[in-house]
Amino acid sequence: MSTHHLGAAQPSPDDTADTADTPVLLDRREGPFGEVALRRRGAHFEIIANGTFLMDTSDGRSERLLISAALDSLDSPRGAHVLIGGLGVGFSLAEAAQDRRPGRITVVEREPAIIEWHTQGDALLAPFAGTGHTDPRTEIVNADLLDHLRTTENRYDALCLDIDNGPDWTVTESNDSLYSEAGLDLLEQTLADEGVLAVWSAAHSRTFEARLRARFARIEVIEIPVQVERGIPDVVYLSSRV
């Protein structure tokens, strides 16, 4: 991995004279799963992985709802252990930290660069995580989610996953297995008996929804309108055994 520093990548005044729609590259790394980049577009930041847009800081409603809806679905959310799959720009962590119900918050992020953009140097993404990074309930784990699920001894009350653009649009091919029957087996093994699985997607996935309905007693599909021209709503799938 390269060791670029955010401060060294700041644009000159001439670079920022473009329109707000022109992205400015702040940092780019070769990480363990390919290239990951941080860009600024106007007042907002963007994360790009292997040339695929992942998320930006313009609208975090659906990422926040991923957490709040999962906690609201629990019969006994007080003291819940929440796993957040994917740190991203930090909206999900911010939502979990501002809620007093979770007892523990474990964030699993496989890209060291993303963690560093939150915690080192200028820490440009830290403000979007709210109080998450200083909350004593929070633990940031640098690991691939599948590896973490295979090795953890925890059983989570809420598994909140936002590591791809959805089951049908993964960042790397290795993530495909997470949404397969084998991946759902693994998720169920680490889910508490009365826990909830929440999965974020940039669009409906009929195949993945069918897999959920075949194994979980309760399924809720929540649509969140997005403020972009494509007009396709974000989706959060909530699943539980009871």
Results as ranks from 00 to 15, higher is better:
residue 183 G to C: 02
residue 172 T to L: 07
residue 181 E to A: 14
residue 239 S to L: 02
residue 220 E to F: 12
residue 173 E to V: 10
residue 240 S to L: 11
residue 55 M to H: 09
residue 60 G to A: 01
residue 109 E to Y: 07
residue 7 G to N: 11
residue 38 L to H: 01
residue 8 A to T: 09
residue 175 N to Q: 15
residue 42 G to C: 00
residue 103 G to K: 10
residue 233 P to D: 04
residue 166 G to N: 00
residue 111 E to D: 15
residue 142 N to V: 08
residue 176 D to Q: 15
residue 24 V to P: 02
residue 105 I to V: 09
residue 238 L to E: 02
residue 162 D to R: 07
residue 38 L to Y: 04
residue 218 R to D: 05
residue 230 R to A: 14
residue 222 I to W: 13
residue 43 A to T: 10
residue 46 E to R: 07
residue 202 A to Q: 12
residue 221 V to Q: 10
residue 99 D to K: 09
residue 2 S to N: 13
residue 226 V to P: 02
residue 145 L to T: 04
residue 25 L to G: 04
residue 130 G to E: 06
residue 92 S to A: 15
residue 126 A to S: 13
residue 16 T to E: 08
residue 81 H to C: 07
residue 241 R to A: 04
residue 83 L to Q: 08
residue 133 H to R: 07
residue 67 I to Y: 05
residue 23 P to Y: 02
residue 137 R to D: 03
residue 177 S to P: 03
residue 231 G to R: 02
residue 87 L to W: 01
residue 14 D to V: 14
residue 220 E to S: 14
residue 201 S to H: 05
residue 242 V to I: 10
residue 87 L to Q: 00
residue 230 R to E: 14
residue 242 V to Y: 13
residue 43 A to P: 11
residue 194 E to S: 14
residue 197 L to N: 04
residue 144 D to Q: 03
residue 228 V to P: 01
residue 22 T to D: 08
residue 142 N to Y: 06
residue 95 E to Y: 04
residue 30 E to P: 00
residue 222 I to A: 13
residue 82 V to Y: 02
residue 20 A to W: 14
residue 197 L to W: 02
residue 201 S to K: 02
residue 232 I to M: 07
residue 12 S to I: 10
residue 209 E to H: 15
residue 10 Q to N: 12
residue 225 P to T: 03
residue 237 Y to D: 00
residue 187 L to G: 00
residue 12 S to D: 11
residue 43 A to V: 07
residue 231 G to T: 00
residue 178 L to A: 06
residue 157 D to M: 05
residue 64 R to I: 03
residue 102 P to Q: 05
residue 213 R to P: 12
residue 240 S to V: 11
residue 119 T to S: 13
residue 232 I to V: 15
residue 3 T to L: 12
residue 32 P to L: 08
residue 166 G to R: 01
residue 125 L to S: 07
residue 89 V to I: 11
residue 97 A to V: 09
residue 57 T to I: 04
residue 86 G to F: 00
residue 98 Q to A: 13
residue 91 F to A: 14
residue 210 A to P: 10
residue 65 L to M: 12
residue 60 G to P: 01
residue 78 R to A: 14
residue 64 R to M: 11
residue 214 A to R: 15
residue 234 D to G: 13
residue 58 S to L: 03
residue 214 A to T: 14
residue 26 L to G: 05
residue 140 I to Q: 05
residue 13 P to F: 05
residue 129 A to Q: 06
residue 242 V to M: 12
residue 157 D to F: 03
residue 230 R to D: 15
residue 157 D to H: 09
residue 228 V to I: 12
residue 72 D to G: 13
residue 113 A to C: 03
residue 174 S to G: 15
residue 39 R to P: 00
residue 178 L to K: 09
residue 14 D to L: 13
residue 200 W to K: 03
residue 176 D to T: 15
residue 183 G to T: 08
residue 183 G to Q: 06
residue 99 D to A: 13
residue 24 V to F: 07
residue 29 R to Y: 11
residue 81 H to S: 14
residue 27 D to C: 08
residue 237 Y to R: 08
residue 145 L to C: 01
residue 232 I to Y: 09
residue 23 P to N: 05
residue 165 N to D: 00
residue 41 R to H: 02
residue 131 T to P: 08
residue 132 G to Y: 01
residue 86 G to L: 02
residue 137 R to H: 05
residue 124 L to E: 12
residue 108 V to C: 06
residue 16 T to L: 13
residue 187 L to A: 12
residue 96 A to F: 09
residue 49 A to M: 07
residue 102 P to G: 06
residue 29 R to L: 10
residue 92 S to T: 02
residue 195 G to E: 05
residue 197 L to M: 03
